[in-house]
Write a protein that binds this DNA or RNA. Sequence first.
DNA 1: ATATGTGCAAATTCTTTGCATTAGA
DNA 2: TCTAATGCAAAGAATTTGCACATAT
Lengths: 153, 153
Amino acid sequence: METHAHSHCEGEETLRLESALEVLRGAGHRITSPRKALLKVLIREHGPFSADELHRRLPAGMCDLVTVYRSIGALEETNLVRRCDFGDGTYRYEFNTGEHHHHHIICRQCSSVKNLDVCFADGLERLVRQMGYANVTHTLEIFGTCVACQKDK
Amino acid sequence: METHAHSHCEGEETLRLESALEVLRGAGHRITSPRKALLKVLIREHGPFSADELHRRLPAGMCDLVTVYRSIGALEETNLVRRCDFGDGTYRYEFNTGEHHHHHIICRQCSSVKNLDVCFADGLERLVRQMGYANVTHTLEIFGTCVACQKDK
DNA sequence: ATATGTGCAAATTCTTTGCATTAGA
DNA sequence: TCTAATGCAAAGAATTTGCACATAT
């Protein structure tokens, strides 16, 4: 489906990469080829991808799967990457543009992912903050059967 | 914190149990002591609990942990139990009263869970249905630092 | 030079499966 | 009776950890 579409021009991708590397460096992390390669994949294809999917998208022999896990750790820590949880036992990761919070509509049949650029939960976070909670965040994922899979049925 | 509070009188619990057993039976499942015991725990203490937490709450020697997993399967299938995913690698289960959709506020420090009886996502599901999706559902969990943990800090 | 990152292997954690045995309906 | 449920052991899947070696700064 409309998953993982490439959507920006090359110049923009380079910019995002440079700025992401700057963030990494600023947090005291080193710039290594696996990390750079991971960021390139994530910037170019958005995701979300599982650790394994990311690994398979890297240039052949780039690094071990373990390094993907560890690198993602650094990327998450610096907020360059957002972890998604589709409730199927595997975490997925996507590049965090930071621009606006978006959510996913996941097809239960074909697992296609569509982004939804509306966030209904701002009021909710506000409410929870009023209840006394600090550092409030939320996860929201939407599941359904996509149009194509309804036809296939 | 205010987690897992016992909140209904005994008669109501018995009623819920009977009705739950009826649902199970109706779906062609057999009523066994582990299932009855699981439902009792879930009705009395709400949850959400992990499989292991449920197992530890059962009368000593009631059944194997595997049976908890398998029983939960039957309970989920019949919608008596709802699976929650707090993104920490362990699923949790709670009794599904079916009355109204609620969400959880999970404290990142102490893991306490507070229920939030407001659902902001009805409009969202409607929107997604308008986009052509069928069988639309969603998961929404809220994370933060609770009042007590802010003080402890 | 030195702390950080990496590879490989092995451990962990949660959950599921196979199969012989037990027990609901 | 006869099929579904259970126990035990073992398999699976995703992720993490230990430790020696390699590499970015």
